[in-house]
């Protein structure tokens, strides 16, 4: 216990800093992933043919081992002299979060009660009015579930990003492994787990705040 106290006394500022780096990397990736994934998911509900293809590609992306995907990023981004560091890690994380976001958005909109859609059209709503006023609000819980999955997934995968020099909590763990330092490994892992739990809880709160009870039910 005393050793832990001493370890934290020395390393706490660094752990905090790395946690912050980790959070920033994941948040930025998620924001961009949302900007791509949600509109794409919505668009796919109007294009069945493309939907099958896109969802399959996104599924395949998710099966690529994370270490391999980060590896692939290095030669590609070397072309613009950014082979290692923040950018390749960021792009890989965006790719990883696409599947849960696109799929959940697509499914959520598709599953909006057809009678509700019928009523909206029958009352004279234009397509975008129907989307914004009826379909998206009622699809919100499922879309949010996809976002939460993507966030938790990315917090885990971003650990590997330390190998290509993107920083974050992975640094603690990789250093711990190479030095045989259990304190580093454990503190790094716990920080990752905590970050994931807090992020998920925060998103759940946001979801509850912005959807009415009836929609959740």
């Amino acid at each position: 216990m005393e050793q832990w106290a001493r370890f934290l006394e020395i390393n706490a500022p660094r752990i905090l800093e790395l946690t912050l780096d980790h959070a920033v990397l994941v948040s930025l990736a998620i924001v961009v992933a949302l900007l791509i994934g949600v509109p794409l998911g919505i668009y796919l509900t109007t294009n069945e043919y493309l939907a099958g293809t896109v969802l399959q590609v996104a599924s395949v992306t998710l099966t690529i081992p994370s270490l391999a995907l980060f590896g692939i990023m290095i030669p590609i981004f070397s072309l613009i002299n950014k082979g290692i560091g923040f950018l390749p890690a960021f792009v890989a994380l965006v790719l990883y979060s696409q599947l849960p976001i696109i799929r959940n958005t697509y499914t959520a909109i598709k599953n909006v009660n057809p009678e509700m859609r019928d009523a909206a059209i029958g009352m004279g709503m234009k397509t975008h009015q129907r989307l914004w006023r009826v379909e998206i609000p009622n699809a919100m819980p499922v879309i949010m579930a996809g976002i939460r999955t993507a966030v938790v997934l990315n917090i885990g995968i971003a650990v590997i990003a330390a190998y290509i020099g993107a920083g974050g909590l992975g640094v603690l763990i990789t250093q711990g492994i190479s030095r045989g330092d259990n304190y580093l490994i454990i503190s790094g892992s716990l920080a990752v787990a905590l970050l994931a739990i807090i992020a998920d809880g925060l998103l759940l709160l946001i979801q509850k705040r912005f959807t009415t009870k009836a929609v959740v039910e």
């Binding site: 009678e115 509700m116 019928d118 009523a119 909206a120 059209i121 029958g122 009352m123 004279g124 709503m125 234009k126 006023r133 009826v134 609000p137 009622n138 919100m140 959807t211 009415t212 009836a214 929609v215």
Partner: peptide
């Protein structure tokens, strides 16, 4: 079509109320 529908009242069986409103 949009204009036409706004001039016609429409009621369906399951009432079609929007739960988010």
């Amino acid at each position: 079509a949009i204009e036409l529908r706004r001039k016609i009242g429409y009621v369906i069986q399951s009432n079609g109320l929007f739960p988010n409103m």
